[in-house]
């Protein structure tokens, strides 16, 4: 299972890439394989506030539906426009073209709550 070491993870099977005060969020390889083919995503709007642990969107897969949980508090600074027409990017390239949103986070202390690749690997074994 591909788990890039430079990313952070959550137990809700999301990955987080930290750059300055911006966190790019997606779902893990494991999550996309469990979800199966994704039909579409319900996305927040740029500017929406996020609170750690609260839902900010939904992934509708053919067979199931899962909420997306904000890994950090802040506000949505960007959504991936490519997913509107091509939700399959999440299946095909979960750490690349399948990124979902960017959050401008407001509380750096929350970063300590995120998991390392090793911690996350232990969860999905």
């Amino acid at each position: 299972m591909n788990l890039p070491a430079d990313l952070k993870y959550t137990k809700e099977h999301e990955w987080i890439k930290l750059e300055g005060n911006i966190a790019t969020i997606g779902v893990t390889e494991f999550a996309q394989s469990e979800l199966g083919d994704i039909a579409w995503l319900e996305m927040p709007t740029v500017g929406d506030e996020t609170r750690i642990g609260e839902t900010f969107g939904t992934i509708e897969a053919v067979k199931t539906v899962e909420d997306l949980y904000a890994p950090l508090s802040g506000k949505i600074s960007e959504i991936n426009p490519g997913l509107l027409d091509s939700p399959e990017f999440v299946n095909d390239d979960p750490y690349g073209k399948g990124w979902i949103v960017k959050i401008e986070f407001s509380d750096e202390t929350e970063i300590a709550k995120l998991l390392s690749a090793d911690d996350y690997a232990g969860l999905i074994e």
Partner: peptide, 11 residues
């Protein structure tokens, strides 16, 4: 098998 890797339900 619910689906096959590299193919998937839609394909």
């Amino acid at each position: 098998p619910v689906q096959y890797a590299g193919i998937g339900i839609v394909e």
